[in-house]
Write a protein that binds this DNA or RNA. Sequence first.
DNA 1: CTGTCTTTTCAGTATTCACAGAAACGTAGT
DNA 2: ACTACGTTTCTGTGAATACTGAAAAGACAG
Lengths: 177, 177
Amino acid sequence: MKHLSPTQQKFVLHWGEMGTRWGINRTVAQIHALLYLSEKPLNAEQLAETLNVARSNVSTSLKELQGWGIVKLVHILGDKRDHFESMKDVWEMFRVVLDERKRREIDPTLRLLRDCIAEAAKDKETDAYTEERLKALRDFFETTTSWYAQIRQWPTKVMVKFIQLGDKTLKTLRLGG
Amino acid sequence: MKHLSPTQQKFVLHWGEMGTRWGINRTVAQIHALLYLSEKPLNAEQLAETLNVARSNVSTSLKELQGWGIVKLVHILGDKRDHFESMKDVWEMFRVVLDERKRREIDPTLRLLRDCIAEAAKDKETDAYTEERLKALRDFFETTTSWYAQIRQWPTKVMVKFIQLGDKTLKTLRLGG
DNA sequence: CTGTCTTTTCAGTATTCACAGAAACGTAGT
DNA sequence: ACTACGTTTCTGTGAATACTGAAAAGACAG
């Protein structure tokens, strides 16, 4: 690493930008991009040098990536420094990120919706229409998360096959059009 | 509106919080929450008062929500002020948001990946491994977006039925396990 | 136990982002 | 064209977030 080809730079910058759009710190996303493109695991110093950020910054970003579960610490023979590598299977990687976002964001939202609906049923302040809207939202999240919980277990190969069927599933499942 | 029930407040605050986690401005998300819960369209002043934010802020936030396509301007008979209402069908709402995020973020990413891959094939600086990783990412986005393009057209009813099948689709489609 | 190398924590600083308030602009009625 | 009401744009301010550099903590070899 250390100096990146223009192509690699372009990707790393873009990935960082995408990160910010989805609520991920730019540097965190850039480090992830770098590790994803790298055949060999990299250490904190290499990352800091390549991206021109402080090592402390790299350290916390790596912690965050490990927290997401898409980067892990590995050791290189004869080198006592920690090295890091990204998960390389794209499908698996997105599955892991989805799992985590579900756990951090969707599940709490579902809990809150249930609480709100229970409260709304009791108190007189909250009008019926609001209650109805909250229930609609809850139903949506319940339906989609339960679906996700099932299909996330499928092996990647099955998943890809399924996805590639696309529209055709409609006929096979006789869901009408 | 003007004063919200504690339940409504709880939801509006949470929705705002969720917004920030997904790269949406907090106030924008709160306004959306309010409109979603409200049976009647609201005007800018009502929103500003209820949320205690400046009208100018409401104005820009409403523009943003209209840009996303989940809030629209309506007129009330005998009132010349603009009123706004949120889309109420949750499935449709998420479909619209997904469409928009695809357009703004996924599509440009896909274009960039294709560019990078084309460049990588030519220049000697970018190693083969990087090229391979970029192709894996591109394949992922191509497969998933083309799937989405097909299923997004399904009527909500069909969609819900399909989702509720969950795991069962596997057997019916004979995709093995 | 000591010295060296590495990672982590922390406090201060910089940058980015959100917001308020004022001014400018638009529109419809008279 | 003027007025009244509403919307949008713009600039300065404040808050949140990201980042750096230094110090502390940890690991290991000798």
